[in-house]
């Protein structure tokens, strides 16, 4: 089954839409799907032109395609456990929150908290991701725990904060403090970043560009080779963060 959701013009287009109901399993069950526009509850067809093509007997067979002004739609794919969502443009905050399986493809940019506390599945963002990609909610002790997030562009600050499992791969640059408080999993940064892995207690981070303002609380532990985009790269290895009992590993490309 293919469900195409194209946004309708709205009188107040900047008011965000909260749409955690847009997940494949809900369309399979043909639930009365509702979303929120500000403080007003709306039916799906008040916000979207809805087209459904073909049948499906399981959520794995459901593909949702979102198009139009999708950059203000939040929480798409929250608790998704099967199927596929394709976003033709940008997507709002919290896309793929807590998802455990399935695939989300974003052709444009993703707003903050992409794949927040994700458990499994794959998110691929072909543009940039904003702050807190793969991170946790405020005060949570764990961010993403499993699955893969791949961002082909850049990512903002606090990428993979509290990362506990799975892999976050940013092909471009990251902002400030990527991997801060990380305790497990793998963070790969293809470009530059600033102050990586502050207060990390576990996990592995690899920076294949320049790590600016490296914190003084990382201990040099030699060098090793790592592979990135099919090439072997010589990396400095650091252990930290020794401001706490940090047992994390940070690889930074040798100049």
């Amino acid at each position: 089954m293919r469900v195409i959701l194209e946004t309708k013009p709205r009188k107040k287009p900047k008011i965000p839409i909260e749409a955690e109901a847009i997940i494949p399993q809900n369309f399979l069950l043909k639930n009365d799907i509702r979303v929120y526009e500000g403080n007003k509850e709306r039916t799906l067809d008040e916000i979207f032109y809805v087209t459904t093509e073909g049948p499906a007997v399981s959520a794995d067979q459901v593909e949702i395609v979102l198009s139009g002004e999708t950059g203000v739609i939040k929480r798409v794919g929250e608790y998704m456990n099967a199927g596929r969502i394709v976003i033709e443009g940008d997507i709002g905050m919290h896309c793929g929150n807590f998802m455990s399986a399935g695939e989300i493809i974003i052709r444009g940019n993703a707003d903050a908290w992409l794949g927040r506390e994700m458990r499994g599945g794959v998110i691929r963002c072909e543009g940039n991701a904003d702050h807190y990609c793969g991170a946790g909610y405020r005060g949570e002790k764990r961010g993403m725990r499993g699955g893969t997030i791949e961002v082909l562009g850049n990512a903002g600050d606090f990428t993979a904060e509290y990362l506990s499992g799975g892999e976050v791969r940013i092909m471009g640059d990251c902002g400030d403090l990527p991997g801060v408080e990380m305790r497990g999993g793998t963070l790969i940064i293809g470009g530059d970043c600033h102050r990586p892995c502050g207060n990390m207690t576990g996990g592995t981070c690899m920076v294949f560009g320049t790590a600016r303002a490296l914190l003084p609380t990382f201990v040099n532990a030699g060098s090793e080779e790592r592979e990135f985009c099919g090439q072997r790269v010589e990396m400095n290895v650091f252990r930290g963060d020794v401001a706490n009992r940090g047992k994390g590993t940070l690889f930074v490309r040798k100049k």
Binding site: R195, N199, L215, P216, T217, V219, D241, V242, A243, N244
Partner: peptide, 20 residues
Amino acid sequence: DYAVLAALRAIVRGKRSLIP
């Protein structure tokens, strides 16, 4: 500030030799 606070934490934890 973040780096200085991290360094002070490390010193208080007895890791003076690591401070640049």
